[in-house]
Write a protein that binds this DNA or RNA. Sequence first.
DNA 1: CATGGTTTGTACTCGCTGGTCCGTACAGGC
DNA 2: GCCTGTACGGACCAGCGAGTACAAACCATG
Lengths: 217, 217
Amino acid sequence: MPDDQAPRRSRDPEHTRRAILDAAIAEFAEKGFAAARVDDIAARTSTTKRMIYYYFQSKERLFAAVLEEIYGGMRDAERALAPDVLPPAEAMRRLVEATFDHHAAHPEFVRLVSVENILEAKNVAASPAIRGRNAAVIGTLSAVLARGEREGVFRPGIDPLDLHMLISGFCFYRVSNRHTLGAIFGRDLREAEVAAAHRRMAVEMVLRYLAPVSSAK
Amino acid sequence: MPDDQAPRRSRDPEHTRRAILDAAIAEFAEKGFAAARVDDIAARTSTTKRMIYYYFQSKERLFAAVLEEIYGGMRDAERALAPDVLPPAEAMRRLVEATFDHHAAHPEFVRLVSVENILEAKNVAASPAIRGRNAAVIGTLSAVLARGEREGVFRPGIDPLDLHMLISGFCFYRVSNRHTLGAIFGRDLREAEVAAAHRRMAVEMVLRYLAPVSSAK
DNA sequence: CATGGTTTGTACTCGCTGGTCCGTACAGGC
DNA sequence: GCCTGTACGGACCAGCGAGTACAAACCATG
């Protein structure tokens, strides 16, 4: 067998494909789809533009592959969650925190989803894999919600998808709009203290929204 | 004076400039910056590409002018708010509703801000007008917040900018990510019923977040 | 009705960029 | 050693698209 440690250079399709994909993630996340340059993606790798077309056929398909890849990364984030053993409020807190952390740790993901929205989600719409994977989140949320309702710690009548949007909205927005917010209000949202405060905020906002007490109308 | 009713065609700089700006707003909002075509902007007007360069010098400056314009549109939305006469909770509700309505009614605004974020807000950063205008929102929020706190209907210690992000985040996200959300979950967020429910949600979320009762930790 | 500045139109340039042509090198089966 | 398919590379091309050269109208003056 060849040595695994040393970089077995050429003739490694897996490695080449992966390298192109990583370079494409960085390039598309930085510049968006139209402004991204295939030549620049090639320059980020140790291979050539020809290889990009060899493995991915076109710039569009490459971008579609990038989306599949980063949406796939969310699956891992979800799986790390403690499932049904925790009390509902605690499970919900962890869900919110995991969502927050994933967005904060992966600004490329956020940017690429923004880019895809400007493209009107034509790639996501064409990918059953992405659609299915994400729709699963709703199931998890729904289960926790139902359990919490049964135990009387959450109020009834909450739509899981609406709740998902409430959670993701804040987590997404503070990353996607980091630059305009930073320019307008002069606060760097990447600072650790700000991020920690927002993380607590997100949890509190959700738990208060779900609380059964009908104090706020 | 010339007739105001009939279309006084050429030799109308104001009208020409305005027409170009409107066309540019539509084009940039639809396609983003890099994918937008100056020729297509010209085609959306009754004038020519030459005029775009005559009035705006370059594609970049045209985009900067577009941003100034749409951010300016927010000022009008704010002014319609009842100021300090209402009770704090009611004032806050109106603020949230106005924010929600503005985003829902102006998807171009949302898209253009998304595009600007992909450009890392370099245009907003270079425009003191935009920065100043928007920072003013915080003042309004801050005042309502302080009054509510004094009257005991809001809890203390809420940062106005954080609150602004909480409100805008949801309103922005459901428009900016309309397409991916629609593709993944199969729900059209433009439907009147869904929008109405989300509007109520936004208000409730904010009021619950601000409520002094310390039921949720 | 000259005159000069402003507004508008046409036809062009020219660099850039997605995509391809044609060829080489490598590995394994026989 | 030969042969076939897979992995790779560099040079090239064609069309697109931002920006401009060159005027021609137009309008307000004197």
